[in-house]
Design a protein around this nucleic acid. Structure first.
Lengths: 350, 350
DNA sequence: CCGGAACGTGAGAGCGCTCTCACGATGAGA
DNA sequence: TCTCATCGTGAGAGCGCTCTCACGTTCCGG
């Protein structure tokens, strides 16, 4: 297992040395380092001086060994393909998680298993108690990991509402409300026949955004029409295919809500190739507010998720989870925001 | 420091228990676990059976304590802003690094300091010997971290050739050759007045891609013309501004090589707004082959970097570095690839 | 038949830390 | 004045592992 040979010498001071320099016992230094209140002010000062002088930094391994805590949490990303990589979702999430951990002096261990072998290694690693908690990012619902961790009592939080109602903490963006907002926005702009290109029907985000679309129709007193719904897969080509289908089946549409920006970009291209002007003939709204949104022509309206905040919130939940032994599963759903751009500009009311 | 309270009980077996079950000593079990050759086959088998039965997994902290190795390396990303987040560079790199570490049974600790406070914490953490090596991703040359690590003899590898010639291992894509390829491609398509929008002049990638542009001109026997060069900053608005300047100063250009896709997308918009057809009037090539490249209209030709491979190579270098005490700095430069799309389609030779 | 190399194995120290427990000093209450 | 908390401090055990060293076998050559 151990792979790295011959590490350079590390002249770091130990607790013992600090104790000697400060003229106290190891126990007292430990108390100072860990902020125990039962140390007299002058002793504390002396110890702090010694720590400064020696540049002492506690040895994490030694501490872990006795506390049986690692002070590190794992971020596990089990997303096989490009999906996660095509928008800045991942970096933003990681940044949120990282920032939240950093202020708590917790360490972030990143795990991205990419084959079965790796996956097994990951499970073994996690269940061996090498981390105090796990943040799981796997967009598909068929991942066995959450349950494996739950049965082994490893505190964990997942991103996105699990399709099956596993009793587990999760953080999600309000996909349903996001879908509702996007659709309502199109309707408010005077659109009459609003179609939608959905995400995969087995993913929470796909299901919820479609539900939001229906909500908006209901709110507006418009009947839901199955022929205005095309199933996509969040990708650019998927969006193109869905748009072609839509255009063939329902040439009369005047707006499309796409459950991802990538699909929206694909739809945009197909619409324009078919001679439809955007937004004059057909308005388009995407989802994710990815960096491509402002760069399409016309610039794409989109629904923005508070991704960094989701990361922060996951850490928050997880640390709470660890403290209270994960008694009651908790769920946090964060609000989205509609960013209106040219692709859904209003037109004169009929 | 220690923040997490009350961890769940961990019923994991210890070396001692395995030894007892297998009827051997701790030392022997340790030998088996670590693959020592000096164990007889039958004893080894017995130990392995016991390990299986008890589900034994070595305690990393205990091992670290004695070996003074952590079997983990840090990936430090000190990129303050959006740059890293607007293209899939980061996720791809992380995936490459992660995969390479995983097969070596090394752990990836991700550090993304985002303020001064954080930065200090990071330095303290790294220099405390909590990791066996460091992979540094900081695109700007003014980062003090590489030198800090070097003076403290922490093995490290940086991404991208450092602007100042620090004696440190690095992995880079061949930006110069990439710039050359892109420009040569435009020239080969019959373009006469090829402009370029560069990256920041204080970043290796910016400098090198421009140098490649000059190389291609030289190769083609064309004199370098300063008025065909506009400095950008890798961003979309930066590309727009540079393109406007170019169009004003040199309305006669018939091709542009942009040092990033984002800038190319910006340039595309400005060109089209100015009534220039792409690629008929002006051909455009970008850089990075980001996901926006195939989605622009027309689809953007671009230079693709082997990002995953760069990640893998960094790990490779780093582990080697750790083993041989980083004697001689090593540099790895990986080749790029031109992805030709519609934006640079050839036109009939004059 | 014996000395010694070669090999497999076990005993035990110790990595740097935390934490329990005991101890002496101080102060309050009777 | 004499208890008895209270408080700050130190001694020491022990977390789970690796690694050195010593020991017992086996097997060779002389």
């Amino acid at each position: 297992m151990a792979q790295l040979e011959a590490i350079t010498a590390k002249p770091v001071a130990t607790l013992d040395e600090v104790a000697r320099v400060a003229g106290v016992s190891r126990a007292t230094v430990s108390r100072v380092v860990n902020g125990s209140p039962k140390v007299s002010p002058d002793v504390r000062r002396a110890v702090e001086k010694a720590i400064d002088r020696l540049g002492y930094v506690p040895n994490r391994a030694a501490r872990s060994l006795v506390t049986r805590r690692s002070d590190s949490i794992a971020l596990v990303i089990t997303e096989p393909t490009t999906l996660l990589f095509s928008d800045p979702f991942f970096p933003r999430l990681v940044r949120g998680v990282s920032a939240a951990l950093s202020v708590r002096d917790l360490q972030l261990v990143l795990l991205m298993p990419d084959d079965m072998d790796d996956e097994e290694r990951t499970v073994r690693y996690l269940t061996a108690g090498h981390v105090d908690g796990v943040i799981l990012v796997s967009l598909h619902g068929d991942d066995p990991l959450p349950e494996q961790l739950a049965t082994r009592h490893i505190p964990s939080v997942v991103l996105g509402r699990p399709p099956r109602g596993v009793d587990i903490d999760f953080v999600d963006a309000d996909n349903r409300d996001g879908g509702r907002r996007a659709t309502a926005h199109l309707l408010a702009n005077g659109r009459q026949r609003v179609a939608t290109i959905t995400g995969p029907r087995d993913m929470g985000a796909g299901i919820d955004r479609l539900a939001g679309y229906r909500d908006a129709l209901t709110d507006a007193g418009i009947e839901f029409d199955e022929s205005l719904v095309a199933t996509g897969d969040f990708t650019h080509p998927g969006g193109e295919a869905a748009m072609e289908r839509l255009l063939r089946d329902r040439p009369d549409i005047d707006a499309v809500f796409c459950a991802s920006d990538l699909m929206a970009a694909g739809a945009l291209g197909v619409l324009q190739a078919a001679g439809r002007r955007v937004p004059e003939d057909v308005a388009v709204v995407g989802y994710d507010d990815s960096p491509i949104a402002p760069t399409t022509r016309p610039a794409l309206s989109s629904v923005r998720q508070p991704v960094e905040e989701m990361g922060r919130e996951m850490v928050h939940l997880l640390t709470g989870n660890i403290e209270r032994h994960g008694r009651v599963p908790r769920h946090v759903v964060l609000a989205t925001e509609l960013i209106a751009r040219a692709s859904s500009a209003g037109r004169a009311m009929r």
